[in-house]
């Protein structure tokens, strides 16, 4: 490194400078975190498998192509075995990833749509609006989320979109708190005052300063909302009030697998592992991103 304390020494030409941007530094911190990087790669593989599910397996998720071999154990031909209704279990798991990740991502988008504007407004306006938002969040902390979700799921009679809505309803709180904290700390930053002193319009401040600086909490909030929603979907489906059969869902498969567990272990093990690995990967990725984007929070 060149000595930075001296005033104005000749420095490397621009061009090499691009790599030093704050986002690049965050990426380097992220890449140094092996667990998060590994989790990201695993998640990417799972996402690719979900997208290209028809290429990954020959049969459809609901095709009862192997009825004669129902409940067969894993083999080289059927990696995860066959389920009770004669469907290739690996295919079911792969298509289950579509449902699980799809719901996770949609719910995260929904959380963002609710949490981002509310958090930004609460942090920026402060005062009464902030008070109301914080009281609402307090309500959410007092109601047990799973029970409420259960209730809402019965109320809406389940289904994919109901679950997305419910997960978003409980997911926005985190996003909102993250964005609010960022915007709030931001309001006290002096470069905002400097911009005001320059006569910058509120629009300029939001566009040039607020949005670029809020990228990190938004990314972190988004990624961390995914495993939460996936967990909720699996939980509701496990209880039979989430995604309805024959749509393949891991939670549902675990529920069915429980009944066969004593004799046909593969029926329970694979959906359990699929869910655990995916949720774990998404959480580790989110934690890693948080540490990389906001080094001050490290170790929390």
């Amino acid at each position: 490194m060149t000595d930075l304390s001296a005033a104005g020494p000749a420095l490397p030409r621009p061009g090499s400078a691009k790599r030093r941007s704050p986002l690049y530094l965050a990426w380097r911190r992220f890449a140094a975190n092996k667990a998060a990087l590994g989790a990201g790669i695993i998640l990417l593989v799972i996402i690719l498998m979900a997208i290209f599910a028809p290429l990954v397996s020959k049969t459809g998720p609901n095709e009862q192509a192997f009825l004669t071999k129902a409940l067969a154990f894993p083999s080289s031909e059927h990696w995860f075995g066959i389920d009770d209704l004669g469907r290739d279990f690996f295919t079911r798991i792969v298509y289950g990833a579509r449902v699980s990740l799809g719901i996770g991502l949609s719910a995260a988008v929904f959380s963002l749509l609710l949490g981002l504007p509310l958090g930004a407004l609460a942090g920026y306006l402060g005062g009464r609006f902030d008070w109301v938002i914080m009281r609402i969040i307090e309500l959410f902390s007092v109601v047990p989320p799973l029970l409420a979700a259960l209730l809402l799921a019965t109320l809406t009679r389940g289904g994919v979109w109901a679950i997305v809505l419910i997960a978003g309803l409980f997911g926005w709180v985190n996003v909102c708190l993250l964005v609010r904290a960022q915007v709030k700390s931001f309001r006290e930053k002096e470069f905002i005052m400097a911009a005001q002193a320059l006569g910058a319009s509120p629009w300029h401040i939001v566009w040039r300063h607020l949005i670029p600086n809020s990228v990190s909490p938004v990314i972190v909030g988004f990624v961390l909302a995914i495993p939460l929603a996936m967990m909720l979907e699996a939980s509701l489906s496990f209880l039979g009030i989430g995604v309805q059969p024959p749509t393949p869902s891991w939670g549902q498969m675990i529920n069915v697998g429980m009944n066969f567990m004593y004799f046909y272990w593969h029926m329970a093990v694979f959906p359990v592992l699929a869910l655990a690995v995916t949720i774990l990967a998404a959480s580790l990725l989110g934690d890693g991103l948080r540490d990389a984007l906001d080094p001050t929070l490290k170790g929390r």
């Binding site: 420095l11 490397p12 621009p14 400078a17 030093r20």
Partner: peptide, 10 residues
């Protein structure tokens, strides 16, 4: 008192 190349730094 700074070099012009600082323009692209952070």
């Amino acid at each position: 008192g700074l070099d012009g190349s600082y323009a692209t730094r952070y």
